[in-house]
Nucleic acid binder design. Sequence first.
DNA 1: TCATAAACGAACAAATTCGATCATATTCTA
DNA 2: TAGAATATGATCGAATTTGTTCGTTTATGA
Lengths: 258, 258
Amino acid sequence: MTELLATARHQQILESLRLNGQVRVTALAEELGVSEMTVRRDLNTMAASGSLVKVHGGATLDAAPTSNEPGFAKKLALELEEKQAIARAAVAMIRPGMSIALNSGTTTFALAGLCTRINDLTVVTNSPRIAEIFYAEDNHSQNIILTGGIRTVSDALVGPLALSALGQLHVDILFLGVHGMTVEGGFTTPNMLEAQTNQAFLKAAARQVVVADHTKWGVTGLCQIAGLGEVDALVTGSMLEPETAEILRQSIESLVLA
Amino acid sequence: MTELLATARHQQILESLRLNGQVRVTALAEELGVSEMTVRRDLNTMAASGSLVKVHGGATLDAAPTSNEPGFAKKLALELEEKQAIARAAVAMIRPGMSIALNSGTTTFALAGLCTRINDLTVVTNSPRIAEIFYAEDNHSQNIILTGGIRTVSDALVGPLALSALGQLHVDILFLGVHGMTVEGGFTTPNMLEAQTNQAFLKAAARQVVVADHTKWGVTGLCQIAGLGEVDALVTGSMLEPETAEILRQSIESLVLA
DNA sequence: TCATAAACGAACAAATTCGATCATATTCTA
DNA sequence: TAGAATATGATCGAATTTGTTCGTTTATGA
């Protein structure tokens, strides 16, 4: 067997991994004609770059077949404190008896956790994960409405069913999580179907509130949901740069720094 | 059989658990080619991480992944073997490329667990719990459509949104779980909204298959879903009494005893 | 209630795997 | 070509995993 370059070896390890679902250090060492130590080093670097997960004896794909959506927990941890602060500021806008809408997102997820004790609340969401929070709480004075549809990787129900459902509903306040916002691009998301669904959310709400941490500023996703001036309020973190805040204030009626 | 990594073993245990609803230490030890002690240790770590619940002799599915709905796990355990047999008989009716519908119920839940590997399958369901099974499997050739609506205590999405969604869809086969069936009452359920939703399911399907274990016979719920003769097939357990089977055969085109 | 068999888990032993470290070989750069 | 940087191999003690034994606990039927 000819000597393989390190990167070629990595390639081959990945291939074997995809083929068998798992690889063992000992088997790879023999297969590739290198020492076990080298294989371990390879696996370490590849694990560091996230292309596989090391386990005792070898490595597996990042599968995480049971705990689905590994990215979600990670995203939720990002800027967690800020998200919590934003959620606290947003929940102050809600009164018992209101109907609200929450699209799928980590910030709206955090907000949902603060809403379970509000009596006589109606919640419309396209996120099974958010709906689950309310189901678990089991507050019988609350009405949880899940839109239908097909689920995207970011836990959002989208598509014709979601649009049709949102077309039949009207809520007092929408809290909209977004992926990016810029002056030119407005509020954006990388997923076209989610953008469409979020637009339906906007139409269904009397008052539109975007919730987004400061890292979203300057980010542009593939699809625009709305222009900056098309929403009623923006709740974001207090570490937003002053110049940015000034720009936003010119476009948006109400800017809340949590 | 190549040696399995510890994590791969855990995955296999989970799969077996989802498939059968329960696992036994002795059976797993033989199946996986490891000692019983190792299986126990696996179950312990998996129980600690919350992915299953240990019981004497083996393990079962988590009572409730998100802690609510204590009745569901209990119902699932009831007549478990019969439900599994019914599910196996029902899954034989499904071909790759088909679109199927599953209403909310423990028998349809068991059936869903057997469907995750069928390629090119479209599944319509009003049960977030059933949808979750498919999400976790992450088979990208499958299309999972969740109807919208309000969730009942038995994990069914119902109401105008569910009806509207089902009005827009057409599937090849509906597998319908019911709460009771009698000659006079037909197929029934205790929840009026679920009855209405299930009727919408019936309308949306080219072929209607009721799945029900033998204990459902003689039970009458508050609301009728359909008369006995209004469905195309009934899959039920083989311990159904012969006289009952005879009566059913007179009304239903196809009676399958699993 | 008691007896019995199965299941359990603690403890120990054996085998395997891991990674830190150092020596050697190869490649890159000046 | 010399020297540096990098990649690889080898060694060995530590950590992990697995199997076995054996006393204890649990389930079940008489």
